[in-house]
Structure formats: structure tokens, C-alpha cells
Write a protein that binds this DNA or RNA. Structure first.
Length: 360
DNA sequence: GACGTAACGGTTGAA
DNA sequence: TATTCAACCGTTACG
């Protein structure tokens, strides 16, 4: 099938404008970096622009996640239904309360923390728009609560929005129930809690954590990630967005599938291939019953370990790209940060070589 | 040549 | 139901 969709970049790589690269490729980028391969070579090899490689690696170093950020939607609302409810109560109990007092109380009562407490102006707006004279729960709210709220949750979508909730485990939980949460193995196990990541000090989205990645199905914790959706029809069914989601997948599938093979072996390494596979091949139909993989047997991957030859890398990258380092003269790879060093160990050995050798 | 980054054209999805 | 619009995307080009 002809991949109707993607575009081809200057390096000959396929990409879909506006959409994230497949996780398998993202992962691969990180792995290669951990193996000491320079970004420029990763770029050439995987045919992903160096700007993108740079961005993905930078993010990984910072957050520990290979996942793309949450696309679309609105900012995580700080004025969650629960917050509004509390504000309403405060106001009811003390009609003369000031917005700043409400703010303080939200913090004091633990309804919010400093990261998600609404601004005074937001509170004022809430009082004005949603609470008004205090009578009813703007039907809006209540209505919504039932549906939307139930299944999805902000956390899920914006893993980073709620610092506290996160935690390696927590995060993951964003995922729909039923997900096979298996093992988290995943090669990328980096020394996880990297200081800032976890703490999210930066307030950045530190949350997509690797655990997520490890998640069974493919690190795709984020909704945004079409990948997942495929996997959890249920989930989106909730908000009824399926359609687009699925379509998207299909599209993607078209694009990537061909190369998925690629990812198959490319990534082949250590982690369960299953993941990767799941990722893309997501059934165009989407149907993937949540629990299974129908995704194939990615044997190639397995074969890998030993020989390293399974890489018919041909398609993926032009062999030549690698020339230099393949040849041994590779200089000590430019230093990746220290944290990486360990990671290095994690992954190393395993496959690593296959790629290199194969290309040589 | 390697690489960080801004501009750009694009998609997404909560509100 | 349709529209808005801010979030993110990867590529490109520049420095």
C-alpha cells in the first residue's frame, strides 16, 4: 500500500506533518544515543531531522520520557469540578469571602497545591460565571462530570499537570484499566527518578515517565498518542472521539506500517518488541481488543540478539551513513550526560552492536 | 561538520 | 454541532 500520507524529509525519512514520530523511532533515538552514537549519526541513520533528534534527546534527558507532549485540547484546567465545588462551598458558607481568601483556603484545605491552585482572577471569574448567585451548579458542570470526567481524567492527558498525583506508578495509572500493565521492563530503564524529573520542579511536563513507557502497551500513556487509542477503544469511546482517533491511526498505519518493519528491527533490541509493534500496527481497525496483540509476532526482533544480523537495515538507513563510526574510528561519543552513562549500561551490550555492525 | 533553536506549516482536542 | 485557539509536532534553516 502506498503510504498515502506522509511526507519525506530531506534525509529521506517519512514523517507526518504535525504529528509526533512513532514511539518506536523515538525510543530508538534514545537508545542509540545511549549507545554512544552521536546525534548527527542518529539523525542520518533513522532519517529524522537533527532538530528532532535534538529535541527528543533533550526532552529525554530532562524528563526521562521519550513520549511526545500532549497535543491539543486545552490547558489542564485548574478549575476542575472539584475545585469549583469547593469554591462554591466556601462562598456559600461565607458569602463575603474574597477571592484571595478562597485561594488560600484551597491551598490550606489541600484542594489544590501551589501548582494548580487557580489564580485570584480565575476564582473571581468562577464566582462570577459559574457560581453567580450561588444557586446551581451550572448545569454545565454537572453534566459534564458524569461523562467526561469519569473516564478520562486530566491526569491522563496531561500527565504533567498534577505533580502530586504522579509517581511512577501513579502516572501510569492514567491508563485505562484493563490495560495490561505488565511489566515494565523496557530497556530504557534509566535510573529513573532523575532528580528533577520526578519532582517536576520545573513544572514542565515531567510526568510522562518511563514507567509509562514501560507500560505494556507501548508506552503510550497519553491519550494523545494515537497509539493508544487503538489499544483502548474503550477509553475514547468515552468521549466519543473515536472516529478521529481511529482515522488517524489508520492514516498513520499507512504511513508507518511499511516501515514498521523497520521499527521492528530497528528497535529490535532489548525491549519487548511487542511494545513497539503494538504501537504501530495498531490495527487499522482499531480494534484491537484491548487485551491482545494481535500484533504480530515480531520475530525479527527476537532473532536479533545473537546475530545482529537480522538487520536488514537496508531500508532504514543507507548503510553509508554510518561509515565512520562503524569503522572503528569512532571517537568517544560525545558525552551524553552522566545519567546516560548508566543507562548505557542498561542497554548496552544487548543489541547495540547489531546496528553498528550491520551497517559496517 | 555538529547541534541548539526559531520560524513555519501542520494537527489536535477541551472548552 | 461547529468553532476557537493554545498546546504540541517535525522539518527546515540559520547561526
Amino acid at each position: 500500500a502506498e503510504q498515502t500520507y506522509g511526507e519525506v524529509n530531506q534525509l529521506g525519512g517519512v514523517f507526518v506533518n504535525g504529528r509526533p514520530l512513532p514511539n518506536a523511532i523515538r525510543l530508538r533515538i534514545v537508545e542509540l544515543a545511549q549507545l554512544g552514537i552521536r546525534p548527527c549519526d542518529i539523525s542520518r541513520q533513522l532519517r529524522v531531522s537533527h532538530g528532532c533528534v535534538s529535541k527528543i534527546l533533550a526532552r529525554y534527558n530532562e524528563t526521562g520520557s521519550i513520549l511526545p507532549g500532549a497535543i491539543g485540547g486545552s490547558k489542564p484546567r485548574v478549575t476542575t469540578p472539584n475545585v469549583v465545588k469547593n469554591i462554591r462551598e466556601y462562598k456559600q458558607n461565607d458569602p463575603g469571602i474574597f477571592a484571595w481568601e478562597i485561594r488560600d483556603r484551597l491551598l490550606a484545605d489541600g484542594v489544590c497545591d501551589k501548582y494548580n491552585v487557580p489564580s485570584v482572577s480565575s476564582i473571581s471569574r468562577i464566582l462570577r460565571n459559574k457560581i453567580g448567585n450561588l444557586s446551581q451548579p451550572s448545569q454545565y458542570e454537572s453534566a459534564k462530570q458524569g461523562s467526561t470526567q469519569a473516564g478520562l481524567s486530566y491526569n491522563h492527558i496531561y500527565p504533567y499537570s498534577y505533580p502530586n498525583t504522579m509517581s511512577p506508578t501513579g502516572t501510569k495509572m492514567g491508563s485505562p484499566p484493563g490495560v495490561p500493565v505488565t511489566a515494565g521492563h523496557m530497556s530504557l530503564s534509566r535510573p529513573w527518578p532523575s532528580a528533577h524529573t520526578v519532582s517536576n520542579i520545573l513544572g514542565i511536563r515531567a510526568f510522562m515517565d518511563p514507567t509509562a513507557i514501560a507500560g505494556a502497551d507501548g508506552y503510550a500513556t497519553k491519550m494523545e498518542d494515537w497509539t493508544n487509542r487503538a489499544a483502548f477503544p474503550a477509553a475514547h469511546a468515552v468521549n466519543g472521539i473515536d472516529k478521529s482517533a481511529i482515522e488517524a491511526e489508520i492514516k498513520y498505519a499507512q504511513v508507518w506500517q511499511p516501515s514498521s518493519t523497520l521499527s521492528g528491527y530497528v528497535s529490535a533490541c532489548a525491549y519487548s518488541p511487542s511494545n513497539q509493534y503494538g504501537v504501530y500496527s495498531g490495527p487499522p481497525g482499531g480494534y484491537v481488543a484491548p487485551g491482545h496483540h494481535h500484533w504480530q509476532p515480531q520475530s525479527p526482533a527476537l532473532s536479533h540478539p545473537g546475530g545482529g544480523m537480522s538487520m536488514h537495515a537496508g531500508e532504514i538507513h543507507s548503510p553509508m551513513t554510518f561509515k565512520h563510526q562503524a569503522r572503528g574510528d569512532r571517537k568517544p561519543p560525545s558525552p551524553l550526560s552522566k545519567q546516560q552513562q548508566h543507562q548505557h549500561e542498561d542497554l548496552s551490550g544487548v543489541h547495540a552492536t547489531s546496528l553498528l555492525t550491520s551497517s559496517s
